[in-house]
Design a binder for these strands. Structure first.
Lengths: 141, 141
DNA sequence: ATGTATGCAAAACATTTGCACCTGG
DNA sequence: CCAGGTGCAAATGTTTTGCATACAT
């Protein structure tokens, strides 16, 4: 039950919070903008405000339930935090996002941060390019 | 002469463009927001509009003279493109930015993209943390 | 001269906030 | 019941655009 997940992080289990959490857990597209979350909820007949979507997503981020990414172009998307860190490949043609983890890169980052005297809090790696499907065919043009 | 650099990329050598290019080339802080560029130019007595700063920086980016980064928090900064790619360590306390290049990471990225069938266009790696100075002392709090 | 670039003000977005009303525990 | 949460509308901050004027070639 999502109610428990919310209480666990100290948030009241209100309707908007439950709906947003459920949406993030079930939607096939893992990366959504606040606007998308809002529209999807409206389509499903939920009476929610855009301001609430932002408030809730921000609270979820603070609570660690969700991770926010600022992709190129200034677009920010939210993604459920499943606990395991990963980086992203973003297709600049069709918008597809592929996740990956590479232990070699992770380790190199730790070494570099140490060399530079930094105490790593977080990091993100975005690789932008054209995915296989878009190379062969026409893409989304 | 910066005039040549501009013409080389197909841009007329106008006063605002020259001033902005010169500023990016000479300012000690390599990463600047549009707002910062604007304010610095005003302080130096240049009569420039914020809209022009945005227009020029966007043109520079399209021309490859400049690289734009979208840091966490939605902040975007511009940096002169010196031709050599590099990644960034960002201190979350004092805002200091340290550049680095790691050939191992670069190579792993190429391998991963290939495995996933992507044709890399670009990539960026941001490591957020606390720099040495901020760990010892108090930082900017 | 003449097409482009500029400055200004207004518009367009994305996100946040104030406030009166509603709701979960 | 009542602190906290919500919807709405208005405020904010950033980036873009329309337009008459100014400039580079």
């Amino acid at each position: 039950m999502e109610t428990q997940e919310l209480k666990k992080v100290g948030l009241k289990a209100t309707v908007p919070r439950l709906r947003i959490l459920q949406l993030l857990e079930s939607h096939k597209q893992r990366h959504l903008t606040a606007e998308e979350v809002y529209k999807i909820l409206l389509e499903v007949g939920e009476d929610v405000g855009l301001a609430t979507v932002y408030r809730v997503l921000t609270q979820f981020e603070a609570a660690g339930l969700v991770v926010r990414h600022h992709f190129e172009g200034g677009l920010s998307v939210f993604e459920l935090n499943e606990g395991c860190h990963h980086d992203h490949l973003v297709c600049t043609k069709c918008g597809k996002i592929v996740e990956f983890v590479d232990e070699v890169i992770e380790q190199r980052q730790r070494i570099i941060a140490q060399q530079k005297g930094f105490d790593i809090a977080d990091h993100c790696l975005y690789i932008y390019g054209v995915c296989g499907e878009c190379q062969g065919g026409r893409g989304n043009e």
